[in-house]
Design a protein around this nucleic acid. Structure first.
Lengths: 221, 221
DNA sequence: GCCAGTTTAAAACAAATGTTTTATTCTCCT
DNA sequence: AGGAGAATAAAACATTTGTTTTAAACTGGC
């Protein structure tokens, strides 16, 4: 009844993550996943009800793995400055999204997250509350610490979005970036360099926003 | 033989842009497009060979429309400073991606571009050379002008990517942004405010990168 | 009026694919 | 050894969907 023996189940999740990430929900076929996992088609429906069930399990596993293997406070001294914490946050994001190394790496799975941003599936709801919102709150807290005197959310949230946006963009647009300028396309080697670039760029952005006059958030009258 | 009478053909393109943008190539069905366009299924194959042909035509039309209706130098005085030119560039990008207003607006079609970044289709090749690369070159030139003393492409290109990334992210992740903080989700009203935010943020980022020491682009020894 | 090009209507075809079923084998635990 | 759950194999089923076909109606220009 339980899952003490899970070589096949794990293999299915592994292959499904790869293929769902590479092709998307619709384009990924059960048969292709079964083939890649060297598993019978029926075994998939046996373990995960149907295709949606499998997808939900993959999504949950990807986020769980990402947030445990590459936590946003990776390699961070407890006395680290807010700037250092931002750096760790961005680096962790790049590793999560792009690194194919590491235990049960996330080779094609970063794209899975990008797909969810475009077309949230029903399974995304849970992941959003459990992983993404806390992650966003952490980033906002870091930005607030960098800015010093607490600004309103009308400055903090867009800053967070601008930072996340840069990271996500590198992950989702990597095929096109490679065509435009191969040097800047994210790979295993330049991953840290790109992360540090986004870090410096964002520090400058935060400083600029911090000293800027209040932005009109609604209609002024 | 020519297309002097093009009410149906135009209606097909209109509906196809909407549905391709909303559902993606695979999820969009010819039947749904025909229904939305109030057109017979056979008429689609009559005008555009097959589904791929229709998609290619839509992609071309979207980029052509976007770059003519919202050129990157919109409302720009010839004497404008580089900073102002960057502002116009970013605003045009937001309008292209998010505005549903305007002639033959781009309601759901911004998402079509985001999809192409994730999974470039064969039809994207042409669009990349014709629209995207020149667009990128323009942005790089603007950034170089802002920086003053000409830095290498190892600073310019990532800056361009960081700026584009922020714009694209707002367009592609809008459903999730709305769930996290509805105030910052892009709408017709706050479109300019968001664009100006990205502008200020990016100016700060460019300045920070400009004064930063040279980033190690390859292996140092 | 006629006729080529256009559009509609409805049906049929072929292929891909999610799902289920049946029977058989494997594997581990008691 | 025996048996319950896990896994395989192969086939069948139902649905969706891109594409084609056939026949009829419409439309504008010579």
């Amino acid at each position: 009844m339980s899952e003490p023996t899970a070589p096949t189940k794990a293999r299915i999740l592994e292959a499904a993550g790869e293929i769902f990430g590479k092709k998307g929900f619709k384009d990924a076929t059960i048969r292709a996943i079964a083939l890649a996992a060297k598993v019978n088609i029926a075994a998939i429906n046996y373990h995960f009800r149907d295709k949606e069930g499998l997808y939900g399990a993959v999504l949950e596993e990807v986020f769980h793995l990402g947030s445990t293997r590459f936590p946003a406070t990776l390699e961070l001294a407890p006395t680290a400055s807010p700037q250092e914490r931002l750096r760790a946050f961005i680096r962790a994001m790049f590793y999560r999204l792009l690194s194919s190394e590491g235990w049960g790496g996330l080779s094609g799975r970063g794209r899975l997250i990008a797909r969810e941003l475009l077309d949230p599936s029903p399974a995304f709801e849970a992941v959003l509350d459990r992983y993404i919102k806390p992650h966003k709150d952490l980033l906002v807290a870091i930005i607030a610490a960098i800015m010093g005197s607490n600004p309103g959310p009308e400055k903090l949230l867009p800053c967070a979005l601008s930072i996340i946006g840069q990271c996500i963009y590198y992950a989702m647009a990597s095929p096109v970036i490679r065509r435009i300028s191969a040097d800047q396309a994210p790979t295993e080697e330049n991953l840290e360099r790109l992360a540090d670039f986004v870090w410096l760029f964002s520090l400058g952005g935060i400083a600029a926003i911090n000293t800027a006059p209040l932005l009109p958030t609604k209609e002024d009258s």
